[in-house]
Amino acid sequence: MTALAPSRPTLRGNWERNQSLLPTLAAVALFIGMLVYAELAYGRVFHAGTMSSLLVSFAPTIILAVGMTIVILSGGIDLSVGAVVAFTSVSGVMLMNAGVNGWLAIVLMIVFGGLFGLVAGILIQYFTVQPFIATLAMMFLARGLASMLSTVPVHAPDDAPIRLIATDWKIIDGPKVNDLVLTPGFVLAVFVVIAAFVYLHRTRAGRTVYAIGGAESSAQLMGLPVARTRVSIYVISGALAGLAAVIYTAEVGGKAQNVTGIGWELDAIAAVVIGGTLLTGGVGYVLGSVVGSLVLAALWMIITKDGSIKPEFLTIITGSILLVFVLLQRVITRRRVE
């Protein structure tokens, strides 16, 4: 559809650009609305302590959403991220227990994630396997391998460097628990977002991602390195899942389980879609996906604060929000085609 050519500053071009921004703006409005509602209904939301714990606990989701954005922009999907988080965290912690240098183990976790992505990318690019089938296979492979390693939780040693990633940095020391506390893990997530923004909007490889998602054959005919870029997209997504595993494992005190991350791929997809990236590829923003993750975070906060909404409704609510935003996309793209 639209490969987002640098639009001329015409009225029409502006309108088209704004139209593709519409879902993202809707997500921002939704996020602010949810926060205001939560503040009025439960209080203590615009509160440094609440905000920082929300941001810190959603750092892995934000990282997964960034990886998923790049994949979806290229017209693909990665269903394996949740299972890759499980495998990399279990294998990483087991390596640390086996006496491997803690920092090396962390690097290996990211490398393992990238390897799953590499296999998926090769299947998709060179053997024309549909992305959701290839990554579904990776999902089961990673989950099965994680279960082979251990079906009981494993714990990292007390002096493992991975625990440093969850160190609390008190930025503002407020009264009582009202402190602005950040962790190195959250800072890493911010770095990932900035890096992805630069990659997608300021590098040739990033523009190629958009071009593949817009029209693969055109990208090929323009002489863009489609094969290399597509494989690297899945490697990036897998490696980011590995990084998310590092941060999550650190956050839960070095505990890793083979059942971690069930359904995380859906959260990531929901965050990306809510943030305004088209599932058909070619249109979207990485910052939108961050907003999408924050919407999910706010939803989670409202449900926990409320307490009267039963947890079993959570998946139905996430599913419904995802559906509403997909339908919204459909309406907008239809109108543009006509």
């Binding site: 299947l123 089938i133 290839a134 296979a137 990776m138 999902m139 089961f140 492979l141 989950r143 099965g144 391998l145 279960s147 082979m148 079906t151 083979n258």
Partner: peptide, 13 residues
Amino acid sequence: SAATPAFKAIVII
């Protein structure tokens, strides 16, 4: 039995 998905994944690949 938690490991069966890995075998199935290999078969499907």
